[in-house]
Write a protein that binds this DNA or RNA. Structure first.
Length: 374
RNA sequence: GGGGAGAUGCCGGAGUAGUCAAACGGACCAGACUGUAAAUCUGGCGGCUUUUAGCCUACGAAGGUGCGAAUCCUUCUCUCCCCA
């Protein structure tokens, strides 16, 4: 169990490695589809597997509220529950402190959540979250952290870092108490946009010796350039022999840049959420398939793509499905987007192994347009 | 043949004298989405322009009454319902 660095690109800081988990190996860099509610929305586990995804993500906070521990325990854990036998990373609920800010209150001991489902109150402590992730059978657990919004005053970040560090320490202790030693636990580096605070946080978190390290609190509304300034700076403060995970990022551009900055793992809702909203990703750029120009376009989303959607269906058909509000449309685009993301990152890994990642990235970015003409 | 109801923007449908280029839906057009409260949300939707404003054309047709009409009156055309 753990991370092994296999190769470093000679032209950039990009790395290729292998993360060994209780449910198999994950080659890095790696993109993990987000399955918050024990499902990569609109796709079956079989479809996700067929896309080439090696690692997926789920969310402890959401699954704690519903269906709850009893159901998951009775089901034999999260893997069996959702019929996914590969590795699963579980997020803690730290992001929900940000996204459901109106419904929670952070305290030193933990976070008081008012359920967005039924209004019931739940006090989540770092210990409870780790315990729950243990019950899920998570391969990679994330500790409870405070994901701050942007912008935040420096003094608030300093206060928040104390809490996140305290929670990290307690999470680590709680993880040691779990009977199963099959899970890894990553540490999360916060610090908002203040580089010196990022540095302090990185040192503190690394001092606790986690199985891997995550950069959190990015892509929460700050400009793109800031994401990369923080990522590059912080990634360099992390030990080379541990996996680096950039939480919640991102767009194809963002991921390739982050790989060049030395990041190994990504997760993002964009391919699935945007896919459900009709946006498809291709090597030439982004397409909004609901748009009128695709009405009679009988070419596939991406003619160089080998996914099920592109092998079988046209843009005109998918647009028709969206227009008629047929459920298959958003499934087909989700499927394609996940395939595209996974394939893009796999191609990045190959380029790293050939020491040509920088060239690969430049070439991709040159061709990729945010909204190409059709 | 007799009686009744009605004709509003692409469609459905409010509005019965001024605050109406006209509610609200739908369709259509576009935008947003980065550790998922999201198959969601936002904007546009008569035309033109110097577009946080102005002008023109508009509520079946024609004519009329009003300072002013989608709204009132007259005639016409068409649609639907009931009775024979």
């Amino acid at each position: 169990m753990g991370f092994k660095l296999r190769h470093k690109d000679t032209g950039s800081k990009a790395r290729a490695g292998v993360l060994t988990t209780a449910h198999g190996e994950v080659r890095t860099p790696c993109f993990m589809p987000v399955g918050t509610q024990a499902t990569i929305k609109a796709l079956s586990s079989e479809e996700v597997r067929a896309s080439g995804a090696e690692l997926i993500m789920a969310n402890a906070y959401h699954l704690y509220l519903r269906p709850g521990g009893d159901v998951l325990e009775k089901s034999g854990g999260l893997h069996k529950f959702m019929a996914w036998d590969g590795p699963i990373m579980t997020d803690s609920g730290g992001y929900q402190i940000f996204s459901l800010a109106a419904l929670n209150k952070v305290k030193k001991e933990g976070v008081e959540f008012k359920s967005h489902i039924d209004g019931s109150k739940h006090f989540m402590t770092p210990e409870k979250i780790i315990e729950f992730q243990g019950l899920l059978g998570s391969d990679i657990m994330m500790p409870l952290d405070e994901c701050l919004h942007y912008p935040v005053a420096r003094s608030n970040v300093e206060e928040s870092l104390k809490i996140t560090f305290n929670w990290a320490k307690r999470s680590k202790e709680a993880a040691l108490l779990l009977r199963s030693k099959r899970s890894m636990l990553f540490g999360i580096v916060q610090g908002s946009t203040y580089l010196d605070l990022r540095k302090r946080a990185a040192e503190e978190i690394v001092g606790l010796d986690f199985d891997g390290y995550a950069l959190g609190g990015v892509a929460v509304g700050e400009p793109r350039e800031l994401i990369h300034e923080i990522t590059e700076y912080t990634a360099n403060l992390l030990p080379e022999n541990k996996a680096r995970y950039l939480m919640g990022v991102g767009t194809p551009h963002d991921m390739l840049d982050a790989i060049a900055e030395g990041v190994d793992l990504f997760d993002c809702v964009v391919p699935t959420r945007n896919g459900r909203n009709g946006q498809a990703f291709t090597r030439d750029g982004e397409l909004q398939l609901r748009n009128a120009p695709f009405k009679e376009d009988i070419s596939p989303i991406d003619k160089s793509c080998d996914c099920y959607t592109c092998r079988n269906h046209t843009r005109a058909y998918i647009r028709h499905l969206f227009n008629t509000n047929e459920i298959l449309g958003l499934r087909l685009v989700s499927l394609h987007n996940i395939y595209f993301y996974v394939t893009l990152i796999a191609a990045s890994r190959e380029a790293i192994e050939k020491n040509s990642f920088d060239k690969f990235r430049k070439k991709f970015k040159e061709k990729y347009k945010r909204r190409p003409k059709c």
